[in-house]
Amino acid sequence: MHIFSALLKHEFLLLTRNKEIFFTLLLFFGLSLFLFPFALSSDATLLKSFGPGLLWVITIFTILSSVESFYKKDNDNSLLSFYYIQKTPFILVFFTKIIAHFCLMISILMIILPLFGLFFGLELKSIVILSASLLLGTPPLITLIHFAIALTLSTQKTGMLVLVIVLPFIIPILIFGVGTVTFYETGQTLKQPFMFMAAIFLFVFAFVPWIAAYALKESARQ
């Protein structure tokens, strides 16, 4: 257990020391949301129907653009190889990285969501439902993206490759995540999309972390 807390402390220390990444992501998120009304239309009903989808897509891109920072340093200074030699369980390494990334994303979303609701004209109830779907959807999303980077870690250029690998896997999460708000707006029962999201959550966590930890371990061995 104390390995886990030490690893967790390491990840959070890195995050708090590198405050730049938080503000960069926050700015990226806010500015890209801000641009869409100009590109699409300022029509209130259109914004309302496009809004949740945009928020989800930008969330995905924000996670994708920040995932490399969780591994680059560890890979460059051979920390992962050190873990391998020390026989540190890689599943713990993987989980601490996911937890740290999740906390980073949640702190960004907590600032963005009220502003988003204001600018895109969503009611409080829609925002609450959107937050719930994000809360349920981002952990499997982050897990899948970290899985993709664990696969590509031994290659030099990971950026585009991670996007290509992860794309087929995240489409279901995107569909159901946006579906929750659409269901609410059209007055249908919310049980169905949320059940599906919960199912994906459980399914992803049943398999992917272990396989990703194995991939991480194999990459560390290189």
């Binding site: 696969l151 690998i165 087929p168 489409i171 279901p172 159901f176 599906f196 396989i211 990459s219």
Partner: peptide, 27 residues
């Protein structure tokens, strides 16, 4: 290491095919 990583991708990909089909159907 390539074949190890490719194995994992193919296996996870197969697990995901029914999920993708189901979700796209729903969508």
């Amino acid at each position: 290491i390539a074949s190890k990583m490719l194995r994992l991708l193919a296996l996870i990909g197969l697990l995901n095919i029914p999920i993708i089909k189901g979700s796209v159907q729903w969508w």
